[in-house]
Write a protein that binds this DNA or RNA. Structure first.
Ligand SMILES: [Mn+2]
Ligand SMILES: [Mn+2]
Ligand SMILES: [Zn+2]
Ligand SMILES: [Zn+2]
Lengths: 157, 157
DNA sequence: TTTCTTATTGATAATGATTATCATTTTCTT
DNA sequence: AAGAAAATGATAATCATTATCAATAAGAAA
């Protein structure tokens, strides 16, 4: 039984705020909670709207600032899928969804997460990261893999 | 002897303009030439500056428009490395540099192209694309692989 | 070559996402 | 309770990208 795979939860992130010498405030909690409760890749605007429900006084500036912090600490991925705005995603997702890759429809912009890696895939990426790290003296933090193309609906249409 | 691997050149792209029913104009030629003569990933502003030398009357709007065309025809990749602006790269590069992946320094934004894939890597990506295409009924056009981290100079500093 | 039709261009204004400012409010520590 | 520092939110400022539109140039037809 691998207890390692126990789901992490918000408390880890909350804790990180404290240990980093930053304050764990209501708006920050709210933003993290939103991120924890979605399987999408919400934009700043979307996160703002959502937080606003629970915490109407929040300003969108704070959303930007909090996300920046989380990205710099390596807790959140910042994506650009070519829409002219960024999208965000928790890296250690409390509700399952761990590291994954993306299929992106260039037509309708739909995004498919896939986590069902083939064995070779995980293995290769580990090998790759070691090789590249050594060869280029580059300390790799994370990677992004995106397949661009046309989704099912857009083909049949 | 594989004559297939002969380097493609600008004429292929020039030709494509015609067959697509678009006009091959001076500004368009100039933009394509710039893209052919760099190993970087120039931004719109950079391309504009460069073209401007040869063709001082060009407007930056035309650079945007031409790049859009090339991206839509699958001749140019549009990248976002997290700088708040897009960068572009010819897919079939006349001067060698073919398909490659990226190492991106999150600190100084330097970008390393690597083309020295290991055999497994190429093989895996082919397998992956077939599998994903079938599973998700998704017509894959191209993929992007980016490793984010800290480069040599930024570590020793 | 001249004429005609239409795609293309470039100046300019408009948009929209992200950042910078700064006075005010919270938080945490004495 | 008081003070120092961090965080917030309203607002203005930036900056990349788009939309408009009249002027121009390219290619087809004559
Ligand atoms: Mn995802
Ligand atoms: Mn490249
Ligand atoms: Zn689609
Ligand atoms: Zn660097």
């Amino acid at each position: 039984m691998k207890t390692k795979t126990l789901k992490s939860n918000n408390h880890d992130i909350f804790f990180k705020f404290k240990t980093n010498g930053h304050r764990l405030t209501a708006p920050r909690k709210a933003i993290i909670t939103i991120l924890s409760n979605t399987n999408n890749h919400p934009s700043v605007e979307e996160i703002y709207m959502e937080v606003h429900k629970q915490y109407p006084s929040i300003g969108i500036t704070t959303v930007y600032r909090t996300l920046d912090l989380l990205v710099n600490w390596g807790l959140v991925h910042k994506f650009d899928f070519g829409e002219g705005k960024s999208r965000y995603e928790l890296i250690e997702h409390p509700n399952g969804l761990g590291h994954h890759h993306h299929l992106i429809c260039v037509n309708c912009k739909k995004i498919i997460n896939y986590t069902d890696f083939i064995n070779d895939e995980i293995e290769l990426f580990q090998k790759l990261e070691t090789r590249l790290s050594n060869k280029y003296n580059f300390k790799i933090k994370h990677h992004i893999v995106e397949f661009y193309g046309i989704c099912e609906e857009c083909i049949n249409k």
